[in-house]
């Protein structure tokens, strides 16, 4: 039954894509390539979202709790691993092409910034509609992934990446302990977090992932999805000017957030290699994962500075011998 659902989803998506492309390629449309791509993308969007939701529902139906194979434990299902890499491909295509649309606009001026002209000349032979075309393809991958993971988590009720109710203070404390002390202290002071306490082992995701990484991914992805859909919708529905202006502005802001998120995500996972291995193979050695969760993601609490007795001689506090 689940297979039928997926096959129907694929068939509908393929038919929708075919009809859209056939219309665009018929030669009967009056639009230039860029406008034509906009229409193809807009018409293909519901199918990309629908196919993602169907695949997510299919995966959720077959979801099983974590299993073990000797020393190896399953951290991610094959569907999650494949879904993650589909989203990665989407980002690798959509982010640079989106940035070029934005940068191309601000670089194209009488006296471009140093180096800007070099880039403009380099990409001059490539028609602008190709950047849009690739951006739409990347965006379709991202939208598929958003629908896929949204449906999957909604149905299987896997809430491991969410902070459990009443535990935000604990997770924020763990996050503050994981980041460099300068940032941790700035976060802890206004929130009155106790950084001297020993925290329980995070499970199955690190405090950094639950308190910071996942919420910011969710926010940035929701923002870019909603603003992107509004921008795309203007080709089939009259969107009021101010709404379109803010959608465009926030779409750029979300793009910037995602650029930062990708950089930070790579920095964090490269330093914790077992997490990278898990997202490639799905399996990870229990010892390596425990090493990440127990020692790296549960850093030692801070030890408060020893207070000096009132009679201590001046100079001791700073360790000065003068």
């Amino acid at each position: 039954m689940r297979w039928l659902l997926v096959l129907a989803g694929i068939a509908i998506a393929a038919a929708g894509g075919y009809v859209s492309l056939a219309q665009a390629g018929s030669g009967a449309q009056p639009w230039d390539p860029e406008l034509s791509d906009n229409f193809v993308f807009m018409r293909a969007l519901p199918f990309a979202l629908g196919l993602g939701a169907v695949v997510g529902l299919f995966r959720a139906g077959g979801w099983k709790p974590a299993v073990r194979r000797g020393d190896q434990i399953r951290r991610f299902s094959p569907g999650t691993v494949i879904g993650h890499w589909i989203a990665t491909i989407g980002f690798v295509i959509a982010l640079p092409t989106g940035l070029w649309q934005y940068l191309g606009g601000i670089l194209s001026q009488d006296v471009p910034a140093p180096g800007g002209q070099l880039l403009l000349d380099l990409f001059h032979p490539v028609p602008l509609y190709w950047f849009y075309r690739l951006h739409y393809i990347g965006a379709a991958f991202v939208l598929f992934s958003v629908a896929n993971f949204g449906a999957y988590w909604w149905v299987n009720r896997d809430r491991a990446l969410l902070v459990p109710r009443g535990e935000w203070r604990l997770h924020l404390t763990g996050f503050a302990l994981e980041v460099p002390r300068m940032f941790g202290a700035r976060l802890a002071a206004p929130l009155k977090l106790d950084l001297t306490q020993r925290l329980p082992q995070p499970r199955p995701f690190t405090y950094y992932e639950t308190a910071f990484s996942f919420p910011t991914w969710t926010f940035a992805l929701a923002l870019i999805t909603i603003t992107g859909l509004l921008k795309a919708m203007r080709y089939i529905y009259p969107i009021p000017g101010p709404v379109l202006y803010w959608a465009s502005t926030l779409h750029v802001a979300a793009m910037l957030l995602l650029v930062l998120k990708v950089l930070d995500h790579l920095r964090y996972t490269l330093a914790r290699w077992p997490l990278m291995v898990a997202m490639t193979r799905g399996w990870v050695s229990e010892g390596a994962l425990r090493g990440v969760l127990d020692t790296i993601a549960r850093p030692e609490p801070w030890h408060p500075e020893p207070t000096l007795p009132a009679s201590a001689p001046a100079g001791v506090a700073g360790g000065s011998e003068r």
Partner: peptide, 29 residues
């Protein structure tokens, strides 16, 4: 602000990558 933030995060990633290149076994975990 956007440019400054991208620069900071890019430098952090570059430093992490160089650390792994210099000592492959040093990646935590």
């Amino acid at each position: 602000l956007g440019g400054a933030l991208i620069a900071v995060f890019a430098v952090a990633l570059a430093r992490q990558s160089l650390r792994i290149l210099r000592a492959p076994g040093a990646a935590e975990g």
